[in-house]
Design a protein around this nucleic acid. Structure first.
Lengths: 121, 121
DNA sequence: TGGGCATCTCAATAACTCTTGAAATATTGA
DNA sequence: TCAATATTTCAAGAGTTATTGAGATGCCCA
């Protein structure tokens, strides 16, 4: 269960343009991930030290995970942290008023296959 | 539909301890909101100028809304922006793999009443 | 209209963050 | 082992952000 400190670290990591783009790129890339070099090319060719700075910042915040594959290091999105962040932000949003947070659920579930037991609202 | 600039502004606003606490407090407070003074008391009695700085930062980022009521200014959470932020972060997360983002949906919908057409997963 | 309350604005300072470029580390293949 | 490739580490400088305290503004009621 995410705590305030972790959430602050995650939001801080996401508040920088390059890092937000990296996370979104990795979210769409899926579990296979991408190498640091390929991610760097996608960020209008940012320098390697700059990429390293941002990638380790994201890893520190728990938003991405890495593994070495030969000479490359492969990064992928940490979906558990992303889910936890959403849950932390909206925790106790209902308090007897479910209509308060259902727009957020709708926004999120609309991007997903509905065959998993989640209906559109 | 949220764009990158708005999302960066929102994440930046949420990356500061006092502001994150304010947003979460207002999320639980619901649509009626709370006055700046009452919010300040809840933030271990932060100074009025400090509260004003953070509240206007949050309003600038679209995360809270304000209205005057007599001498007080009442702030409430902007749930549309919060939902939009979640949607922006997870956009295109599925790409043929709905299991990728369904944990996030589950995390969020578990906080809500299920009688509105949203089922738990 | 005047006093008091609630909040905002402003300027100065301290602390933090990002970028850059040079150098170090790790891995692979000749 | 040597050279090439991929990535990380480090230090310096520029820019950004948070806090503080003093003062200004807006509103209400006697």
């Amino acid at each position: 269960m995410m705590n305030e400190k972790q959430a602050l670290s995650a939001f801080s990591a996401l508040s920088q343009e390059t890092r937000l783009r990296i996370v979104r790129l990795l979210v769409t890339a899926g579990p296979h991930g991408m190498s640091a070099g390929v991610i760097g090319d996608a960020m209008d060719g940012a320098s390697s030290s700059r990429m390293s700075f941002h990638l380790s910042h994201l890893e520190q915040a728990g938003l991405v995970e890495s593994r070495r594959e030969g000479r490359s290091i492969i990064y992928s999105a940490a979906l558990t942290t992303l889910s936890g962040l959403v849950e932390f932000l909206m925790r106790d949003c209902c308090q007897g008023h479910p209509e308060v947070c259902s727009p957020a659920v709708a926004a999120l579930s609309s991007c997903c296959d509905t065959s998993k037991g989640i209906s559109h609202v």
